[in-house]
Amino acid sequence: MDDRRSRFEAQVLPHLDAAYRFARWLARSPDDADDVVQEAILRAYRGFDALRGSDVKAWLLTIVRNCHSTSLKQQQRRAQVPLPEEHDTQDGYALIATTPDPESASIRRDEEHTLESLIAKLSDDYREVLVLREIEDMRYREIAAVTNLPMGTVMSRLARARSALKEHWLLQAKGEPHAVP
C-alpha cells in the first residue's frame, strides 16, 4: 500500500466536505465548483509533501481558493476571445441573454429572502471571510492564511460583511424593507 496516499487520505480527506462547501460559495456554478474541488484535491496531493503538520483544513481551503482564482482567470480569458466577424454584437448578446420563464422567476423571488441568497449577493471579498468564519468556524489567523490577507483586513471585511448582511436580514425579518435608520 502506498504510504503517501494513505497519509493523504487520513489527513486531508476528512476536510473534503469543507473544500466542497467553500468551492460552492466561491464558484459561479455548481459545475465550476465540482471542477475546482477535483483540481484542488489533485494539487493538494501533488503538494502534500510540503505540508508540515500545520493546519490541514486551512491549507486545503487555500488551495481551493487558488484553484478557483485560476479557473476564473481562464474563464475571463476565454470570454475575451472576440466572436467571429459574421456575428455582430447584437447577435452575440442574443446568444447569452435568456428570458427567464415565469416559474424560475418566482423561485428566484422566494430565494431572495433566504440568508443563503443574501450571502450569495455579498461581494466576493466579503463573502469568503464570512463563510470561513461562520460556516467553517475558522479562527482569524486561519482566515488570514487562506485569503492571504493581513489579520486587520480580515477583521474589517468580516465586520463589513456582517453589517451588510445584518442590515438586509434584520430589515427583512422585521418586514420593514424601507425603514432604513
Partner: peptide, 29 residues
C-alpha cells in the same frame, strides 16, 4: 451579531460533498 449568527447556524446547509463527486475525485486521485 449574535442573532445573525444564530440564524446562520440554523439556516445554512452544511452540505456534504455529493457521493458522485467524491467518487469522481477519488478516481482522479
Amino acid at each position: 451579531l449574535e442573532q445573525l449568527r444564530t440564524a446562520l447556524r440554523r439556516d445554512l446547509p452544511h452540505t456534504p460533498i455529493p457521493p458522485a463527486l467524491r467518487a469522481r475525485v477519488m478516481r482522479a486521485l
